[in-house]
Amino acid sequence: MRALFFRDLALALRAGGGFGLGLAFFLIVVVLVPFSVGPQSALLTQIAPGVLWLGALLACLLSLDRLLAVDWEDGALDLLATSPLPLEGIVAVKAAAHWVTTGLPLVLAAPVLGVLLNLAPSGYGVLVLSLALGTPALSMIGAFGAALTVGIKRGGLLLSLLVLPLYVPTLIFGAEAARRAAEGLDSGTPLLLLAGITLAVLAAMPFAAGAVLRVNLR
C-alpha cells in the first residue's frame, strides 16, 4: 500500500505527470478574476474567500481524469486489481496521492493568492484551515468520479458533470467558513460541518469507488 502511494507520488512528480499544473491553473483563475470583475479592492475583499475556494475546487477537478486513466490505459490497474490489496484500498491510496500532489499545494498557495485578492487579514487562518479540511473530500469524491468514467473515452467532460454537483456541500461549507472568518464572524459551525462531511466521505466513498471500479474491470 505504501509502495503504491510512493509510486503514484513519483509518477505525479515526474515531468508530464501534471504536477504543478493544478497550481498554475489556480494562479491563473485568481489572476483573471480582477480582470473580469474590476480592480476595486473593496469588491475583491468581499469575494476573495469564494473565489479562492472555487479556484481551488476547479484546479482539483482539472487533474482528476488522469487519476485512474493512466493506470487503466497501460493495464497497471488490472495488475493492481489482482494484487492482494482490496480495490477500495487502492482507490483510497490513489486519492491520497492525488491530494498530496494537488490538494496540499493548493492549500499552501491559497494565502499567497489571497494577498492578490486583497483578502481580509482575519480570513487567512480559516481559509487555509477550511481548504485543508475540505480538499481531501474533493480528492476522494473525485476518485469516485474518475472510477465511474475510467472506461469511457474522452470522459473528462462527463467527469466534471458528475463530480461538480457532488462538490456542492463541501464548497458551501468551506467557502462559508472562509467568508465568515474574513468578515470577522465566528466560523466554527461551518468548519465542523465541513470536517464532518470530509470524514464521512473518506469513510464511505472508497467503498462506492471500489464497487464502481470492480464493475469497470469486469
Binding site: 457532488l166 456542492v168 456541500p169 458551501i172 461549507f173 462559508e176 461551518p190 460541518l193
Partner: peptide
C-alpha cells in the same frame, strides 16, 4: 451516491 449528496446539499443550501 447522488441521493446522499442531494440530501446533503439540501441542508447545506439551507444553512
Amino acid at each position: 451516491v447522488g441521493t446522499v449528496f442531494a440530501v446533503l446539499s439540501r441542508y447545506a443550501v439551507l444553512f
